[in-house]
Amino acid sequence: MQRLLAFIKQIYVVLIFVLIEGVALWCYATSTPYTEAKILSRTSAVGGAVSGMVTDVKHFFSLSDKNRDLTARVAHLEEMLASRIADEGIDIDSLSSMMNARTELAYRYYPARVVSLTSSKLRNYLVIDRGADDGIAANMGVITPDRALVGYVVSCSPRYSVVMPVLNEKFRIGGSLAENNYTGSVRWSGTSTHHVDLIDLSTYADPRLGMAVEVRSERLPEGILIGHIDDFEFNATQTAYRARLHLAVDISRLDNVIVVENSHYGEIEGLMETMD
C-alpha cells in the first residue's frame, strides 16, 4: 500500500494533467456536431477496427441463423416472382429489360455492418464498416434490409462512416402519412428510444392510430418506413397535428444496414441552394 502511495505521489502531476486534459478534450469534442462527428470518425478508425474484429467473431457464430433467414427470403422472393409471372404473363425478356431499367434509376445500395453505436445519449451516432473507399459519402441515407429508416451518413473515413440515426436530437427528416401523403417533419425529443415525433402535420391530414409514416426525403426512395402512429394531438396553437410515432427499427439492436445513394442528390441540393 505504501509503495502504491509512493508511486502515486511520484506521478500525481501526470495523473492530474491527464484528468484535466481529458475533461477539456471532452468538452471540446461535444461542443459542436462537427467536432463530435470528426472525433468520432477519427476514433472509429481505431475503435472501429477493434469493434470490427469482435463483430466478425459474433457474425461467424450467427452465420447459420443469417443463412436460414436469407434462404427463407430468397424462397419468398422466388415465390413472388413466380406468382407475378403466372398472373401477369411477364416473360424473361421483359423481366430482363425491367431490371436493366432499374439499374438506371437514381438509387444505389451498399450493404454495411454496424460496428459500434450509442443509443443512450441525446446525440447518438453509429459507425458502419464502409467508408469513402467503398463509395460512401456524407448525406447518404441508411436503412435496414427490411426498408425501415435508420438515419443518414454525416462523416466518412476511408474505411468507416459515422451515421446520425433517428435517435439524435439534431436529426431532421420529412415524413408523410402512407395513406394520404400529408407530410410533416420528424424529430426526436430524447424521451424514448422507441418513439419519435412527427410535427407540423396539416390539420387536414386526418391521422389515425397505427397509421404508417414513411420517409419523404431526397436522400431516400419512397416506401421507407419510419414507424406507426401511437398517439396524436393538436399542437399548442391548434394549427397543426403533432403525432408520436413508434419506430419501425430498434436502433440499439442494429446489425446489418443498407446505405442508399441518390445519384441525383447533388443536383437537387444545388437546385435548392439557388432558391436560398
Binding site: 501526470v14 494533467f17 486534459e21 477539456a24
Partner: peptide, 24 residues
C-alpha cells in the same frame, strides 16, 4: 488562463487542451 480564453473566445475547452501540455 485557458479557461479565461475559452470563456472569452468560445473555445469550449480548446484553449485549455492546447495550453496544458505546455505547462507539463
Amino acid at each position: 488562463t485557458g479557461l479565461l480564453m475559452d470563456i472569452s473566445l468560445g473555445g469550449a475547452g480548446l484553449y485549455v487542451a492546447s495550453l496544458l501540455p505546455l505547462a507539463l
